Simulated scan of single mutants.
Amino acid sequence: MPKSILPPHQQVTEHIQKLDPAIIDMVEKLRHIILDTDGQIAEQIKWNNPSFYYNGEMAAFDPKEYKRDIAVFNLHKNRVMLVFPSGAKVNDTTGLLEGDYKDGRRLAMFTDISDVEAKIVALQMVIRKWISLIKK
């Protein structure tokens, strides 16, 4: 089946299977943590990487504002980064989010599977705070 015909979930699975084996377990663990955080989070390939977005009801907005986008992977050998395009709007008291970019994005870095496991609560807290800010 051509990639464009596959459902988004399957496209993400195929993308992950082609990654450097050193980071596959980390990416899969993060994927499941994010999807398990809220039933209205969906996944797709966007910006050439797995990404997560809110697929529930929202007030109308300009699609170029990326208000639906929660996080997108930025994947490198032996390092996994989650980019939150509008992460600056979240009052992150956990210290998970890093960076102070003018465009409003913030980053979360993960070095290995134990680092991912140590940050589960913080990651889910940041995502829930992000979702709570959505204008519905």
Rank of each mutant, 00 (worst) to 15 (best):
Q17R: 12
Q40D: 09
T13I: 14
K64H: 06
E117T: 08
M1P: 08
K135V: 11
H32M: 14
I113V: 06
I131L: 14
A88R: 07
A71Q: 06
P85R: 07
L82K: 02
K136M: 11
K77E: 00
V27P: 11
V12N: 06
D20H: 09
R128N: 14
D100T: 12
M58S: 11
M1E: 15
D20L: 05
I70Q: 00
I131R: 01
T111H: 09
Y53E: 00
K64Y: 02
Y53T: 01
D92K: 04
A22L: 11
Y66D: 04
A122Y: 03
F61M: 07
Q10K: 14
I34G: 03
P50T: 12
M58V: 13
L75M: 12
I127T: 04
E117S: 06
L82Q: 04
K18S: 09
N74P: 07
I41T: 08
Q124C: 04
N78D: 10
I24V: 11
H15S: 09
K3S: 13
M81A: 11
R128Y: 06
G39L: 02
M81C: 13
K119R: 08
D25C: 01
H15R: 15
R105H: 13
E98T: 13
K119I: 10
L107V: 14
V27T: 12
R105G: 05
H32P: 03
T93S: 08
D20W: 03
D25R: 02
S51C: 13
D25S: 13
E28I: 03
W47P: 06
P50W: 04
L96I: 07
P21V: 12
A22K: 15
P8S: 10
L133V: 01
T93Y: 02
V126F: 01
Y101T: 12
P50A: 06
I24F: 02
I5L: 15
L123R: 06
V83L: 10
I45D: 03
N49P: 08
A118R: 14
M1W: 10
L30S: 12
E57K: 15
S86C: 04
N78K: 15
K64E: 05
T111A: 10
G95A: 09
A88H: 08
K119F: 08
V72M: 11
F52G: 01
P2I: 15
F73E: 05
D92V: 04
L123T: 14
I134F: 04
R106G: 00
W130F: 09
Y54W: 08
P21S: 07
I34A: 03
